[in-house]
Simulated scan of single mutants.
Amino acid sequence: MGLGQLALELVIGFFSLLFMTRILGKTQITQLTAFDFISALIMGELLGNAIYDDDTGVTKILFAIAVWGLLIFAIQVVGQKSITLRNLFEGKPSLVIQKGVINRQELKKNRTNINELLTLLRDKDIFSVREVEYAILEPNGSLTVLRKPEFDTPTLKDLNIAVTKKSLPELLISDGKIINQALLNINKSTAWLEAELKQQGHDNPDNIFYAEWREEDGLYVIEKNQLNNGR
């Protein structure tokens, strides 16, 4: 196989897998269940074998990816219509702590020991089982926790504090480059941004590493000389 043919197959395979992932949805990436993990492995293996097999051309690569992608898509559709099949393919949540009591049977069923459970709890900033009212082991291996009321974080409503609105920040400058689309999103101009920077003592946008705008907080700026360059 020539280098040109190899490069062509790599490019086509890459964009085919990318396209298939977009079709199948974001859950293939963000919520990796056992079924999703196997799917990703198989698709990668199909592409790898096809690329480095001299007898396999572009047509067979696309065919293999298409067939496997359609199979995954079909199983997803069936899973949406049947709870039983959905649980079979994706698994179902397990209640491993109920009313403060650890369910050893559920831990055994999921082949999880107490040390692994404690590790998952620490990932949720919980260092003692006594703080937990309910804990659910999700199909993707993550742990969802409901704390006991006495250990729960109070809300603004609990503290009778007035609620203020929140908005998403807009990145206006990235590594010295002004992002014009972000300015349009907040109905501001380059002249306005430069005036805001000067008001904070920043004369040259090229020296700005990061600048964001949030309506309730205003402009937040980090200059390049504020960065830790490892020296």
Rank of each mutant, 00 (worst) to 15 (best):
Gly2Glu: 06
Gln5Asn: 14
Gln5Gly: 06
Leu6Arg: 08
Leu8Val: 07
Leu10Pro: 00
Phe14Glu: 06
Phe14Gly: 13
Ser16Pro: 08
Leu18His: 07
Leu18Trp: 12
Thr21His: 09
Arg22Val: 11
Ile23Thr: 12
Gln28Tyr: 09
Ala34Trp: 02
Ala34Phe: 01
Phe35Glu: 05
Phe35Arg: 11
Asp36Ala: 13
Asp36Arg: 07
Ala40Trp: 05
Ala40Val: 04
Leu41Asn: 12
Leu41Ala: 14
Gly44Thr: 03
Glu45Gly: 12
Gly48Pro: 01
Ile51His: 00
Ile51Ser: 14
Tyr52Thr: 03
Asp53Arg: 09
Asp54Thr: 04
Asp55Lys: 14
Gly57Ile: 00
Lys60Tyr: 13
Ile61Pro: 03
Leu62Arg: 12
Phe63Ile: 11
Ala64Trp: 06
Ala64His: 07
Ile65Ser: 13
Val67Glu: 07
Trp68Ala: 05
Leu70Thr: 13
Ile72Val: 15
Ile72Asp: 05
Val77Ile: 14
Val77Trp: 14
Val77Cys: 13
Ser82Phe: 00
Thr84Glu: 15
Phe89Asp: 04
Phe89His: 06
Glu90Asp: 11
Leu95Gly: 03
Val96His: 04
Ile97Asn: 01
Gln98Phe: 04
Lys99Ser: 15
Lys99Pro: 01
Arg104Asn: 10
Arg104His: 11
Glu106Pro: 02
Lys108Thr: 08
Lys109Val: 04
Asn110Phe: 06
Asn110Leu: 07
Arg111Asp: 08
Arg111Glu: 00
Ile114Glu: 11
Asn115Gly: 15
Asn115Ile: 06
Leu118Cys: 12
Leu118Ala: 08
Leu118Asp: 08
Leu121Ala: 09
Arg122Ile: 07
Asp125Glu: 15
Ser128Ile: 08
Arg130Ile: 15
Glu131Asp: 03
Val132Ile: 03
Ile136Thr: 07
Leu137Glu: 06
Asn140Ile: 00
Gly141Lys: 08
Leu143Trp: 02
Val145His: 01
Phe151Gly: 05
Asp152Leu: 05
Asp152Trp: 07
Thr153Pro: 07
Pro154Gly: 02
Asp158Leu: 00
Asn160Arg: 13
Val163Gln: 14
Thr164Arg: 15
Ser167Trp: 03
Leu168Gly: 13
Leu168Arg: 10
Pro169His: 01
Leu171Val: 09
Leu171Trp: 01
Ser174Met: 12
Asp175Tyr: 04
Asn180Ser: 10
Gln181Val: 01
Gln181His: 14
Ala182Asp: 04
Ala182Lys: 10
Leu184Cys: 10
Asn185Cys: 09
Lys188Tyr: 02
Leu193Trp: 12
Glu194Asn: 09
Glu194Ser: 06
Glu196Val: 00
Lys198Phe: 02
Gly201Cys: 01
Gly201Thr: 02
Gly201Lys: 01
His202Arg: 04
Asn204Leu: 00
Asp206Gln: 13
Asn207Met: 06
Asn207Tyr: 05
Tyr210Leu: 14
Tyr210Glu: 11
Ala211Tyr: 00
Glu212His: 03
Glu212Cys: 08
Glu212Met: 10
Trp213Lys: 09
Arg214Lys: 14
Arg214Gly: 02
Glu215Lys: 15
Glu216Met: 00
Asp217Gly: 07
Gly218Leu: 02
Tyr220Ile: 10
Glu223Ile: 00
Asn225Thr: 14
Asn225Met: 02
Gln226Thr: 06
Gln226Asp: 15
Leu227Asp: 11
Arg231Ala: 13
